[in-house]
Design a protein around this nucleic acid. Sequence first.
DNA 1: TCTAATACCTAAATCTCTTAGGTAATAAGA
DNA 2: TCTTATTACCTAAGAGATTTAGGTATTAGA
Lengths: 110, 110
Amino acid sequence: MHSPELLKGTLQTIVLKVLKDHGRMYGYEITQRVKELSGETILLTEGALYPALHKLEAEGMLTTETETIGKRVRKYYSLTPQGRSLVKERVQEFVGFIKTMGNVLQVNVG
Amino acid sequence: MHSPELLKGTLQTIVLKVLKDHGRMYGYEITQRVKELSGETILLTEGALYPALHKLEAEGMLTTETETIGKRVRKYYSLTPQGRSLVKERVQEFVGFIKTMGNVLQVNVG
DNA sequence: TCTAATACCTAAATCTCTTAGGTAATAAGA
DNA sequence: TCTTATTACCTAAGAGATTTAGGTATTAGA
């Protein structure tokens, strides 16, 4: 597990990008996908994830559909057009930040 | 200016690394050096910097010497041996985090 | 002489996240 | 069949790092 401090501020970016690449996903699925992509080092906590999803939905970045599998309910999230723009923005922002940090820390981050 | 959210958790790493590369520095000098290295995009706030320096000093990572230039006081910070170890650790941690994020976001961060 | 820059500092508020709790269905193993 | 782990959603209190906003004072420049 990475120092959780570094993760701050990246949650939205991660969620949006994973949704863009994979399409329609539900909350629990997102945590599993991120866990896998990160080699078990990024373990999203539900206490952070669900409020983040709700916030993005309230802002019009995501839409939801509820599906019932057996008696269990799943809430699927998809990007809206606005959400798609936001992903690009956030990812670019992150890449820019990394380049800057590479200069400041004098390290190769490639 | 980068989204300040991304900066969270990186302040200590930045301060330590800049001190390692440049040697003995005072607070204001650190803000200016980081500003310069980052192409004016990382502007450390004093409200974050000074408490961070004090904390690192209290933890034995930094030592201080006060110097008076005219009537103005400067407080110089230097890394202790422990501080030197911490820099390596923090920078490695950051680089690892970036690599992981590269996988999660499917982007080239080099 | 007024403002900007240099130089230090603290404290309240803010924001994000962790921790810790709650509910419930399904799968797997003893 | 009983128990535990996993799946699946959620909220709220607390913690921690940073911003915002304030304070003091010297020096340089217009």
